[in-house]
Structures are given as structure tokens and as C-alpha cells.
Design a protein around this nucleic acid. Structure first.
Lengths: 187, 187
DNA sequence: AAATTTTTGTGATGTAGATCACGTTAGGAA
DNA sequence: TTCCTAACGTGATCTACATCACAAAAATTT
């Protein structure tokens, strides 16, 4: 189960066995069933979560009760309410399990500890963050520039797996389209 | 002129004079007039730019000739086509000057050199990138959740300075609204 | 297998915002 | 000043997509 995490780190930086064991000792483990919440709006957000198994969504629900999905997370991805996590403020997002889930939990304290003790870990997280930034930029561009249909097709091409694991309603909410419109687009 | 850069670094990490001088030696300087391009779509992107003076926009122009502004950058901000810069691919963005501009230029090589030589610089860039990620997430949320009018008002509240320095047409393009609609909203 | 809940499709209608088309005003340049 | 271009406002019309409403199918639970 920790193998996935090690491989994940080693995509960016090589680690000795001791180094990895040391890193791993800063994580805790958590298992959740389908429909359970990892974070709920209003919570304190103590952890960043590395997904070992399963599938989650991070979403914002507005006053009218409308839900917008900010991120899906599956194996090999990190998920949290980053705003709340990094700034130690109240969560504005809900993060809940679309499938049964296993995650590795990294507290902000442990993250900063690892980053300051091990330069290569700071390097790792810098690179991760850079990639994340680029991905979000391209999502913004897609929201500004593309029609609902184009966004649908882009996503289908980029993450076809998602369409097998997630109901269309949620895909719609991620794309910023109504469920009905999405249904018409895909037929 | 380099004072701004030093202050910028020191918001996150303290530096000795020698450290800062060393850092600064990895930057070059560039001045541009209004309407000049720092980056054009198709270019190789050699630098990340720290804005010392002036105002720029980074935008994407689609096949129909429609321009979407991804980012404004003014004093104390960084701007580049990050996708192209980090991945060493062709620029897809145009970056051009809305006002006369002075920037400090950091090549990818020098950036990585500084990051690997000085742990505190790697730390600095990790934190910058984290903040950037959070800011983009909240922009995505605003695009998914808010109406044109709400987005307009959020921006007006968050960056009122922008409205004094940038024509409404460009604000509209940043918000993802037509010029005409924005005009009707603000009256 | 029956009951319940979730997911999906599809018609009818409504609306925010786009697009087109002008005219006016304001800034820069010669 | 005069010329020229960029910025801004505003009406008329159009359209992509939302919303409402209902039904069928699929998945989950008992």
C-alpha cells in the first residue's frame, strides 16, 4: 500500500529505503466507505490526503444548494481543501468518497517538517505544485474559451477512466454544465 | 529596482546581503514599452518574469480570434507562460505590455540552479506556487458558481487598482464576459 | 425478488449573456 | 488644432444553456 506512495515520490526524486521509511512514518492511514466524508465545510482541515485506493470528489456547495466539483481524486492523486489546509482556516469544501477509499494522511506540521529536513522533499512538493498550477490554468482557459460540448470532449479524451467510475451528474457538475445539457451533448 | 525583489523574497524567507546579491546575479533586466510583447504564442519561453514596474496581461487567442486573459501582472507579481516555461514547449499565450514595463528575468536553468543550491529558495518557490494554486482554485470556483455580475463585483473588491489601470474591455476578457455585457453590468 | 433510491433521457419553456450594429466620447499623435 | 484610433454605452436580436417536469432504466438495499 505504501508502494504506491514511494513510486509517486520517485517519479520526481530517488529515495533510499531509510529515507522512504522516514517519510512514511510521517503519514497516518485512513479507510472510508462510499459516501463518507473526509472533510466537511466548516471543519478544520488537518491533512493533505494521498489517495491509495478509491475515488473522491472535492466540491463546493453554494447557498442555493448547488454543488460544484472542483476536483476528482483517485489513486496516485492528492486531495484536500488546500485553502483551508495551508492557511489553517475553516473548510469551504466537502470532500467525500464516491467509492470506498484508502488514503495516507499528511498533517501540515509533518509536511513542513519533512520539507525543511529533506531538501529533496521540498523539491518534490514544489514540482507537484507547479504541475498543479499549470493544470488549473488550463482548466480556466477551457472554462473561458470552450463550449460545454468542447469541455465535455476534452475531459473525455483526457480522463476516459473517470466516465467509467463516476455518474454523469457529477461529470456535469465538474464541467460547469447542467445534468440535462450534458445528457443531450453526449447523445 | 532590485529592492522590490528583495522585499518580495523576504516576505517568505530572510536573506543576508550576500545571499540576495547572489540570487540577483541570476536575473537579467528587461524594459519594454506599451504594446510590446514579452512572449508571443509559438515562442520558446526562456524566462519567468518578475514585474518591477508597469502592467502586463497574459492571454490566449483562439482560432476565431477571440482573446481570453488568463492573468494580469503588475509590480511584485510573476508572469510567464508557465506551461511552456516549465515543460519547455511552445508558448500558447501572448504576454504583452498594457503599460511601459520593467521586468527581472529568471531562466529555468537559473531557477533550478538557485533552488538546488539554496534550500530556502526552493522553499520560497514552493510557497509561491501553493498560493498561486489556491488563487486559481478560487477563480475556477468563481467561474463555476458566480454570475457575470458577481464575478465583476468580486474582482472590483479584490483588485480595485486594476480598474484604474486597465480598460474595461480587458477586464471583461479576464472575467469571461463580453465587453457589452460588462458595460451594462457596471452601469 | 420486491422495494427504494439513484441515474439517465428527453420534451417544453425561460433567461443570462452573446452578437451585431450604431453612435458618442476620450486620448494620442502630427 | 485636426486627425485617428481606442474606449465606452446602448438598443435589437439571437442562442447556448438552465430550469422544470416527467418517465424509464439501473443500481442498491432489505
Amino acid at each position: 500500500m505504501s508502494k504506491l506512495l514511494r513510486e509517486h515520490f520517485e517519479k520526481i526524486t530517488a529515495l533510499t529505503d531509510q529515507e522512504f521509511d522516514y517519510i512514511l512514518s510521517h503519514f497516518t492511514t485512513k479507510k472510508l466507505k462510499k459516501h463518507q466524508f473526509l472533510v466537511q465545510a466548516g471543519d478544520q482541515v488537518k491533512y493533505d490526503y494521498f489517495v491509495v485506493k478509491g475515488l473522491l470528489k472535492a466540491s463546493f456547495t453554494n447557498n442555493d444548494g448547488k454543488e460544484h466539483i472542483l476536483q476528482f481524486a483517485m489513486e496516485d492523486w492528492w486531495v484536500s481543501d488546500f485553502q483551508a489546509y495551508f492557511n489553517q482556516t475553516e473548510a469551504i469544501l466537502d470532500i467525500d468518497c464516491i467509492e470506498a477509499v484508502e488514503v495516507l494522511c499528511l498533517s501540515l506540521t509533518n509536511r513542513e517538517k519533512l520539507c525543511s529536513e529533506m531538501h529533496k522533499i521540498e523539491h518534490f512538493f514544489r514540482r507537484k505544485s507547479n504541475f498543479g498550477y499549470i493544470a488549473l490554468q488550463s482548466r480556466i482557459l477551457s472554462l473561458l474559451n470552450s463550449s460545454a460540448k468542447e469541455r465535455y470532449e476534452e475531459l473525455l479524451q483526457r480522463s476516459p477512466i473517470l466516465f467509467q467510475r463516476v455518474p454523469k451528474t457529477l461529470i456535469a457538475s465538474y464541467l460547469g454544465v447542467s445534468r440535462e445539457t450534458l445528457s443531450r451533448l453526449s447523445s
